[in-house]
């Protein structure tokens, strides 16, 4: 097979991986602060519908992305209020957020279902996009794809090189110690949860404006949960999130091209692949309890209150 045939496969892999990168990097930061937010799927759905509606009615996709991020933050604040301030069970509250987000998005988006929108087209970068081979390969994506790479570098820098990031990680490992030396545990956790919300919102908006430019009820179809699994798979490391997302993007794309390769498997079985792959990689990573124990933020999922 020649290079020309590989280019679309590479491009669609990157395109399919991008929402996972946003959602998983957001959740990574949330979890690094010790908060497990299982509501990613719900926040993505609301982000998808809000991004779509605002993008359609304002004519500006960037405005749509901003609105989607804000919607994600708003939902994550509900989660934060319940789990951080009221100390509700994080697993139950996250599930509630997912169920609520699914209901809310279907409700809000009912009159927009199936409407077309001018989706995010590829950027044309002067000179770079025109380079043969490399141009179509690397310099012809939409804005959010480059945004996801930038987000990766930002998160990597923040967690490992910035003072605030180190504090956030300390809070995730040992909240009571951090509190004792004067770090604002609750405030930091709120910010981490809000960051996760914003990223999930954008991930959702990417689905409804770039991946398939329309709104369909429940269109995230489990990507929020796959993003959660991706964080575990990446053992809470940003670079592995990035690589893992591309791996999953590749699996998703495989189903589109398998038929073209003369593989006659019913499409439903090919559509199962991303979900089965999620299970397989989870098994591979979790097989050794030490891997999880050494990498998982020590206070993940546990409530903390300064007065308690």
């Amino acid at each position: 097979m020649n290079l020309d045939a590989l280019t679309p496969i590479f491009v669609s892999t990157v395109v399919a991986a991008t929402p996972l990168i946003y959602a998983a990097l957001g959740e990574l930061v949330t979890e690094k602060a010790g908060v497990l937010n299982l509501g990613v799927e719900g926040m993505m759905l609301v982000g998808a519908v809000v991004g779509f509606i605002v993008g359609l009615s304002s004519g500006s996709l960037v405005l749509g992305y901003l609105a989607a991020a804000c919607a994600g933050v708003a939902l994550s604040l509900v989660f934060g209020f319940l789990t951080i301030t009221l100390q509700a069970n994080q697993v139950a509250t996250g599930l509630a957020l997912t169920l609520f987000g699914a209901g809310l998005s279907a409700f809000v988006g009912r009159s927009y279902a199936g409407q077309p929108i001018d989706g995010a087209g590829p950027l044309h970068i002067p000179l770079l996009s025109d380079i043969p081979v490399i141009g179509p390969l690397l310099f012809s994506f939409n804005l959010l794809v480059y945004g996801s790479i930038a987000l990766y570098f930002a998160v990597q820098w923040f967690l490992n090189r910035s003072h605030a990031g180190l504090k956030l990680r300390a809070i995730g490992e040992a909240p009571s110690v951090s509190h004792a030396i004067g770090h604002p545990v609750l405030k930091t956790r709120y910010f981490a949860v809000m960051f996760g919300g914003a990223c999930s919102g954008i991930a959702g908006a990417y689905l409804s404006t770039a991946l398939t430019p329309m709104w369909v009820e429940g269109m995230s179809s489990g990507r929020g949960w796959i993003a959660l699994a991706l964080v575990v798979f990446a053992t809470w490391k940003p670079l592995r999130v990035l690589l893992g997302a591309y791996l999953f993007g590749g699996v998703t794309v495989l189903q589109l091209y398998a038929q073209g390769f003369g593989l006659h498997v019913p499409s439903e079985f090919l559509s199962m692949l991303p979900y089965l792959a999620t299970i397989v990689v989870l098994v591979i990573i979790c097989r050794d309890p030490k891997t999880i124990l050494l990498n998982q933020p020590a206070s993940l999922g546990k409530a903390f209150h300064p007065d308690a």
């Binding site: 319940l82 139950a92 599930l95 509630a96 169920l99 609520f100 209901g103 809310l104 279907a106």
Partner: peptide
């Protein structure tokens, strides 16, 4: 879809 909305609200309020 209002049903799904009510379901989610109910669980939030309970928590």
């Amino acid at each position: 879809a209002v049903t799904g909305l009510f379901q989610g609200l109910l669980l939030f309020y309970l928590l």
